[in-house]
Amino acid sequence: MPRLLHLADLHLGWRPRDLDDARANSRRARRDALLEHAVDTALAEHVDAVVIAGDLFETFDPDGALVERTLLQLERLRDAGVHVVGVPGNHDELTYPTSVYRSLVERWPGLLVTSPTPTKVGTLDVHGEPLHVYGLAYVGGVTDVRTATRDLPAPAGDGTHIFVAHGTLMAPGVSSAASERSLPLDRDALAAAGYDYVALGHVHAPAIHRLGATLAVYPGCVGGKGLDDLGSRHWTIVDLERGSADVREVAAPVQPLRHVTLDVTAMAGRQAIDDAIASLADEAALVRVRLVGALPTTLDLAALTERARGDFFHLEIRDETTAVSEALLDAWAAVPTVRGSFVRRMRRRLDTAADDAERARITRALLHGIDALQERV
Rank of each mutant, 00 (worst) to 15 (best):
M1P: 04
M1K: 15
L12F: 05
R23T: 06
R23W: 15
A24H: 10
N25Y: 13
S26C: 13
S26Y: 15
R28M: 14
R31N: 08
A33G: 12
A42V: 13
A44F: 05
E45Y: 09
D48V: 03
D48R: 12
A49R: 01
V50S: 03
V51S: 00
V51D: 00
I52R: 00
L56S: 08
D61T: 15
V67E: 01
E68R: 14
E68A: 13
T70L: 04
L74M: 06
D79Q: 13
D79C: 13
V85E: 00
V85T: 04
P88M: 04
Y96I: 12
Y96N: 11
T98E: 13
V100W: 00
S103E: 14
L104G: 01
L104Y: 05
W108I: 06
T114C: 09
G122K: 00
E129G: 10
Y134C: 14
L136N: 11
V139E: 11
V142K: 11
P153A: 02
A154K: 05
A156R: 08
G157L: 11
D158G: 12
T160H: 03
A165Y: 06
A171Q: 09
P172S: 10
V174N: 14
A177I: 02
S179M: 15
R181D: 08
D186V: 06
D188R: 14
D188V: 12
L190S: 03
A191V: 05
D196T: 11
A199H: 00
L200F: 02
A205Y: 02
I208S: 15
L215E: 06
V222R: 03
G223K: 02
G226R: 04
D228F: 02
L230E: 06
R233W: 13
T236K: 05
T236G: 10
T236L: 05
I237P: 01
V238E: 02
D239Q: 04
D246G: 05
A251W: 08
A252W: 08
T261E: 15
V264M: 06
T265S: 12
A266M: 02
R270W: 10
Q271L: 07
I273Y: 01
D274I: 10
D274Y: 10
D275K: 02
I277R: 04
I277E: 05
A281V: 14
D282R: 09
R288G: 03
R290N: 09
L291R: 01
V292R: 07
T297G: 11
T298G: 08
T298H: 15
D300F: 10
D300T: 12
T305A: 14
E306G: 06
L315T: 03
E320D: 15
E320S: 07
T321L: 07
A323L: 09
V324R: 00
S325P: 12
L329A: 07
D330F: 15
W332Q: 05
S341K: 14
V343E: 01
R348H: 14
L350E: 08
D351V: 07
R359K: 12
A360I: 05
R361K: 10
I362N: 04
I362C: 06
A365P: 00
L367A: 11
H368P: 04
G369E: 01
G369N: 09
I370T: 00
L373A: 08
